[in-house]
Design a protein around this nucleic acid. Structure first.
Length: 111
DNA sequence: GTTATGACTGCGA
DNA sequence: TTCGCAGCCATAA
């Protein structure tokens, strides 16, 4: 169905909203949770659109697998993503999430 | 209509 | 170990 495509974006937002405060996850983890590990790029694209959506989508809690803030440039100002994360207690250094493995949140296990 | 690109990831050399 | 390439799918030109 063509609604499946829409659902993909919708589910990205849903999962992203489930990310606990002070935790982060990766595009690949979300994509894998949605059933398409290779569709990580679509996750990023969906989050790009999410910045213009009504309601709060913590897209700043989604980084790449290395913990790098690759999407910071899409928040209007490059520092916005970092500041949002630090506001939640996530330490960011040189566009990289410190202790990424530790605060990583897996959508599949939700822990 | 086709081509190029993108907030990525995994695997092979 | 690091480096390069293919695959994923939607949007833009």
């Amino acid at each position: 169905m063509m609604n499946d495509k829409k659902d993909f974006f919708h589910r990205v937002y849903e999962v992203t909203r489930l990310i606990p405060r002070g935790r982060v996850t990766s595009y690949g983890a979300i994509a894998r949770y949605l059933g398409d590990p290779r569709a990580a790029r679509m996750v990023g694209w969906a989050l790009n659109q999410s910045t213009c959506l009504p309601g709060f989508v913590p897209a700043h809690r989604v980084v790449n697998r290395e913990g790098l803030l690759t999407g910071k440039h899409h928040f209007g100002y490059a520092e916005t993503m970092k500041q949002l994360l630090e506001q939640e207690g996530v330490v960011v250094n040189h566009d990289r999430v410190v202790d990424f493995k530790r605060i990583f949140w897996d959508p599949e296990t939700m822990e």
